[in-house]
Computed example of a mutant assay.
Amino acid sequence: MPEGKIIKALSGFYYVLHEDQLIQCRGRGVFRKNKITPLVGDEVVFQAENDQEGYILEVKKRKNEMLRPPIANVDQAILVFSAVEPDFSPALLDRFLVLVEFNHIKPLICITKMDLTTEEQEERVLSYAKDYTEAGYEVILTSSETEAGIDRLNPHLENKISVFAGQSGVGKSSLLNVLRPDLELKTNDISSHLGRGRHTTRHVELMKIGNGLVADTPGFSSLEFLNIEAEDLTSCFPELLNASKECKFRGCLHLKEPKCAVKAKVDTSEIPDYRYEHYVDFLQEIKDRKPRY
């Protein structure tokens, strides 16, 4: 049986790339029975009715998956956040980072619209960029208008499956249009009433950029920690995980435990206050989460 990769899912159809040919497929009923939903990025076995249509018979084992956005087998997540319009939000970025880290996907932080910043706004963004870089993340500052930073971003996309994710209106589609102008992806302005962008991407689709595949995804503004447990959260903050090795108690949650190395580094500003505060907020959110039956 032929095999291929799902590069688009739309209206119940899965578009499978096989030897440079795109086959429009449906999923067999066995997927519904076994509660398996094929995702963009899945490697699949399919049966072709002809050279244009077929049925997916099997979904190969995934190395990772995300539900929001729905995509599988991702090598890295490009987390796109704007410096302004909307303003850079470390709280929202940390939510994205937690989800990506939990799914064992390498994150890369891309801050857009640097050309629109005032001197004060630029200093604020640079300060955050320094913190995230010291925490172990790569941060790239870009502008789709001036194309600043694009030369730094391009090499990261080669021979990888990357997902572009972030809040609506931060410029994901504009950035992709710069990376590959013939895409001509639809973009939209920020709503002055709502203070955020209107959704312009309606589905997940993998697109070839250079020798890599990139997914533009529908924008969204919140994330729920549905599958993350309290004891998992420290591992989603690299600088907290590194410091936790020196905590007195194994399984320390870094709240009120004595001789907590994480809290000690927060007190000496080795770990930024806001990163720790977000950790505490997320931990409480996980503890307050209603159990699923």
Rank of each mutant, 00 (worst) to 15 (best):
A264P: 02
L226D: 13
R250G: 11
D20M: 02
G149I: 04
D42C: 02
S174D: 00
V125P: 12
D288R: 12
A91N: 15
K290V: 09
R196Q: 14
A148S: 11
H203Y: 12
L93Q: 11
V280L: 09
K256S: 06
K287Q: 14
N211Y: 06
L194Y: 10
H18M: 04
K130D: 14
P272M: 04
R68Q: 07
L39N: 01
L223S: 05
T146V: 01
I111W: 11
L22E: 15
L116Q: 12
L39E: 01
G29F: 05
S89L: 04
R275A: 00
T201V: 00
L183I: 07
L253V: 01
V45D: 12
S89Y: 08
L92T: 10
S221V: 08
Y293A: 06
M1D: 06
T268H: 03
L213D: 01
S244K: 11
V178W: 05
G195A: 09
N177V: 02
R292T: 14
D232K: 05
P70Y: 03
I109C: 13
D182T: 09
L108C: 11
R289W: 12
M114Y: 08
L67C: 06
C247M: 04
E65K: 11
K287W: 04
S11M: 11
T117P: 02
K259E: 15
Y276H: 05
T117D: 01
K245N: 09
K8N: 07
E224L: 10
N103C: 07
E246Q: 14
V262Y: 05
T146S: 05
R152F: 14
C260M: 00
S174F: 09
S144C: 04
L10M: 10
Q24N: 11
V163D: 02
E277P: 00
T112I: 01
E257M: 03
E123R: 15
E19L: 13
G4I: 05
E224N: 13
V16G: 01
Q167L: 04
I140S: 09
G41W: 03
Q121C: 04
D75W: 08
L99N: 15
Q47H: 13
V139N: 09
T117Q: 04
A9W: 06
F249R: 04
E231L: 10
L206E: 01
V170F: 13
I140V: 13
L10A: 09
T142Q: 08
I109G: 14
S269N: 14
K63V: 05
D20E: 14
T234N: 13
V98F: 09
